[in-house]
């Protein structure tokens, strides 16, 4: 037996592993309850050891991030709120789902939740189909990262079809649909920006079931301004983006704020 393996043969613990290996064992999850508690105590009291643990957590994190998501039962969130001493549910106002104010505050989170569901691999519908219990608070003004102004694209009956969040600087439009079944006609949705008094310019395909971002070419970005209208029509998949709309307008909304 060579010296290298000697060093790690420690059935009875004569040769304790190095701190780095110990940290790796802790992160790997092989330590029994006692050894695990000791390692956790060291993480709290020994910054050097804590850094070793962090490095191992980082090394193994790709395996954690690949696991399939499983949607928690609806009662978990109210329980968390209760445990924090909050009301279990802060109920949504009637009509909230179609309220621009709600979406202004909620768009970033709804979009990101939808997107997270896609990115993390949650099965099933990716956008909220019914209002889950939400915490509704007035969005503080000027809090950019929480809420970028949104444009609601309403259907003829007044219901919300899509929420658009425009990032002019980066040339991106995030589109979050309130999911609907695919069109039986086989037609798909196409997004248009219509600058005031001008012809519609296609921004290409937009999904009716998944949140996604649309990259806007530099030449078209200036069209995305306050006063312009976003509209969605039903069009043939072929030839998209089209030069001009031919199908019926499914939903539209004016850009009031960017």
């Amino acid at each position: 037996m060579n010296t290298t393996s000697d060093r790690y043969e420690d059935e009875s613990g004569q040769v304790p592993p190095s701190d780095d290996v110990r940290a790796g064992e802790y992160v790997l999850g092989v330590l029994d309850a006692d050894a695990r508690r000791q390692a956790q105590a060291r993480v709290l009291n020994d910054p050097t050891f804590a850094r070793l643990v962090e490095a191992w957590e980082e090394r193994f994190s790709p395996w954690l991030l690949q696991l399939e998501a499983i949607a928690p039962s609806p009662q978990v969130w109210p329980r968390i709120r209760t445990q924090l001493g909050w009301a279990p549910v802060e109920s949504a106002k009637p009509g909230l789902w179609n309220s621009v104010g709600f979406w202004r505050g909620a768009s970033a989170l709804a979009a990101a939740a939808a997107v997270a569901a896609i990115a993390i691999g949650l099965r099933g519908p990716v956008t909220p189909t019914a209002p889950p219990p939400v915490v509704v608070q007035t969005q503080p003004a000027g809090d950019e990262s929480a809420a970028r102004p949104v444009t609601v694209l309403a259907r003829d009956d007044g219901s919300t079809g899509w929420i658009a969040s425009i990032d002019v600087a980066r040339g991106k439009v995030a589109m979050v649909p309130v999911p609907t079944p695919a069109e039986a006609s086989g037609l798909v949705h196409e997004l248009w920006v219509i600058p005031q008094g001008q012809a519609p310019i296609s921004l290409g395909f937009v999904s009716n079931e998944k949140a996604h971002t649309i990259d806007v070419p530099a030449a078209v970005r200036r069209a995305l301004g306050v006063g312009a209208t976003l509209a969605i029509t039903l069009e043939r998949q072929a030839g998209m983006p089209h030069a001009a709309p031919t199908g019926p307008v499914v939903a539209k909304g004016g850009i009031q704020q960017i």
Partner: peptide, 21 residues
């Protein structure tokens, strides 16, 4: 920020339950 917490929960709870399970 409770609203951010709500958003965070909605965006990440599925992944974290996957880890727990």
């Amino acid at each position: 920020d409770r609203q951010a917490f709500d958003a965070l929960y909605r965006a990440t709870s599925g992944a974290l339950l996957g880890v727990c399970m």
